[in-house]
């Protein structure tokens, strides 16, 4: 299998607010790139003298090593003018970029990794939920995911049953829609945008679009960074390092159906950069 399908995908490479004319050295799928502003002040990504295509969206600059057939996905809910948009920053993680997304989709780890925040060891149950690949959008969706959380968000006053929807619109991106404590009926939007530096190293750019009138931006960033730093120690110690697409190496169960749907979707599209194809 080749990496062409992944090369034709869009990836985040930096915060728009952090771009400079001097540029920043980075990597994308093993290739050196420079991310910055060109002579006109427009965002620019250079790869060995080749100017890569760019998109500015969700507070980030996105690029591709190939020729994307589709525009970068959208998040209509994030356009609501009363939402607070939060650029969380970047966390470097020594793991496969696909592992980072798969971990984000795994609700069953909350009580054990995010104890007393996103889950409690006394409430580890994951009720049945619905997983599908939506054919029109060609995206993985998990809906009707319900889970007890003692501190679901920075704005939550106490424990609540949180409802989640997960969406995978691109091979290294996941969007989480989550019960919004201060505004019932609306969803908080929490995104994980992952830049594949190599097959076993990635930069993770979380981004949020929230209804929260009380927390400061610093509070919101600290809450999300706390959660992700708890994940990092798990991610960096997973074996194998790459995400196995053959279930012989890890035995998925019904609670892992979102992960299985994600892996099937990756396999279907040859999105295999960062994946382990055969059990060894």
């Amino acid at each position: 299998m080749s990496d062409q399908a992944m090369r034709d995908a869009w990836f985040p490479v930096g915060l728009l607010s952090g771009l400079t004319r001097a540029g920043t050295a980075s990597m994308l799928m093993g290739e050196d790139i420079t991310v910055g502003l060109d002579d006109t002040g427009a965002p620019s990504v250079d790869c060995g003298g080749r100017k890569l295509p760019t998109v500015e969206r969700f507070g980030h600059l996105w690029t591709s090593l190939g020729a994307p057939e589709k525009d970068l996905f959208t998040i209509p809910e994030a356009d609501h003018p009363e939402r607070t948009l939060v650029d969380v920053g970047v966390v470097r993680v020594k793991c496969s970029p696909l592992r980072a997304v798969e971990n984000f989709l795994d609700i069953a780890h909350f009580p054990f990794v995010h104890t007393d925040i996103l889950g409690e060891e006394d409430h580890p149950e994951v009720n049945n939920y619905k997983v599908e690949v939506r054919k029109d959008e060609d995206e993985v969706w998990a809906t009707k995911v319900e889970f007890y959380q003692p501190q679901a968000a920075a704005s939550a006053g106490g424990g609540i049953i949180t409802e989640y929807m997960y969406r995978v619109p691109a091979p290294t991106c996941s969007v989480l829609y989550k019960t919004c404590p201060p505004r019932p009926g609306e969803w908080d939007v929490i995104c994980l945008f992952v830049q594949p530096l190599t097959e076993e190293l990635c930069d993770v750019w979380p981004w949020m679009a929230l209804f929260d009138d009380t927390s400061t931006i610093t509070d919101l960033i600290h809450f999300q960074q706390l959660i992700f730093l708890q994940d990092r120690s798990i991610l960096e110690n997973q074996i194998p390092k790459k995400l196995p697409l053959d279930p012989a190496l890890e035995t998925p169960t019904r609670a892992d159906l979102t992960s299985v749907a994600y892996r099937r979707w990756l396999k279907r599209h040859d999105y295999t950069y960062g994946a382990q194809l055969v059990a060894e």
Partner: peptide, 12 residues
């Protein structure tokens, strides 16, 4: 059930 879920993914 775990066998069913594993088979859904299958070998590469």
């Amino acid at each position: 059930d775990a066998l069913e879920v594993g088979c859904l993914l299958g070998p590469i």
